[in-house]
Simulated assay, not measured.
Amino acid sequence: MNAAEIIEEIQRLPEDERGKVIEFVRHQPNQETLEAMREPTEGLPRFETVEDLFEEMRG
Results as ranks from 00 to 15, higher is better:
6 I>S: 11
55 E>K: 10
59 G>W: 04
30 N>C: 06
46 R>E: 14
46 R>S: 14
41 T>C: 12
5 E>R: 04
7 I>H: 07
55 E>P: 00
24 F>S: 06
15 E>C: 00
23 E>W: 01
44 L>P: 00
8 E>D: 12
34 L>C: 10
16 D>K: 04
42 E>A: 15
31 Q>G: 07
15 E>S: 07
40 P>W: 12
2 N>W: 12
32 E>I: 14
32 E>G: 10
31 Q>Y: 13
1 M>Y: 14
24 F>Q: 01
40 P>A: 15
34 L>N: 01
33 T>I: 12
25 V>C: 05
9 E>Y: 09
40 P>C: 13
18 R>A: 01
13 L>S: 02
24 F>K: 02
2 N>C: 05
15 E>F: 04
57 M>W: 10
5 E>W: 04
8 E>S: 12
35 E>K: 13
31 Q>C: 05
34 L>Y: 10
43 G>N: 02
6 I>A: 14
34 L>E: 11
25 V>D: 03
30 N>A: 05
56 E>L: 06
39 E>F: 10
45 P>A: 09
47 F>Q: 05
34 L>F: 10
58 R>N: 07
31 Q>W: 12
20 K>C: 06
23 E>D: 07
53 L>T: 06
22 I>D: 01
1 M>R: 11
43 G>W: 01
23 E>L: 00
34 L>A: 10
10 I>N: 04
37 M>R: 13
42 E>Y: 15
40 P>D: 15
1 M>L: 15
57 M>R: 03
53 L>N: 00
45 P>D: 09
26 R>G: 03
51 E>R: 02
11 Q>M: 09
58 R>L: 09
11 Q>A: 12
14 P>H: 06
15 E>W: 02
20 K>Q: 06
17 E>F: 06
44 L>W: 09
29 P>F: 02
40 P>K: 10
28 Q>V: 15
3 A>E: 11
50 V>G: 09
17 E>S: 04
53 L>G: 00
18 R>M: 01
21 V>F: 04
4 A>Q: 11
28 Q>S: 13
56 E>K: 05
24 F>H: 07
42 E>V: 15
14 P>A: 08
29 P>Y: 00
45 P>M: 03
15 E>Y: 04
27 H>T: 11
33 T>E: 14
43 G>A: 07
10 I>F: 02
20 K>E: 07
9 E>F: 10
51 E>K: 01
42 E>K: 07
38 R>S: 13
31 Q>E: 13
37 M>N: 12
2 N>L: 10
31 Q>V: 13
12 R>P: 04
21 V>R: 01
57 M>K: 06
8 E>T: 12
13 L>V: 05
7 I>C: 11
59 G>L: 01
36 A>D: 08
27 H>L: 08
34 L>I: 14
52 D>C: 03
54 F>K: 10
15 E>L: 08
46 R>A: 14
11 Q>H: 07
25 V>I: 14
39 E>L: 11
17 E>T: 08
29 P>A: 03
24 F>M: 04
35 E>H: 09
4 A>W: 14
20 K>T: 05
44 L>A: 12
45 P>W: 05
52 D>Q: 02
18 R>W: 01
10 I>A: 00
2 N>S: 11
58 R>C: 06
16 D>P: 00
12 R>H: 13
3 A>T: 15
1 M>V: 15
8 E>L: 08
51 E>M: 05
32 E>V: 14
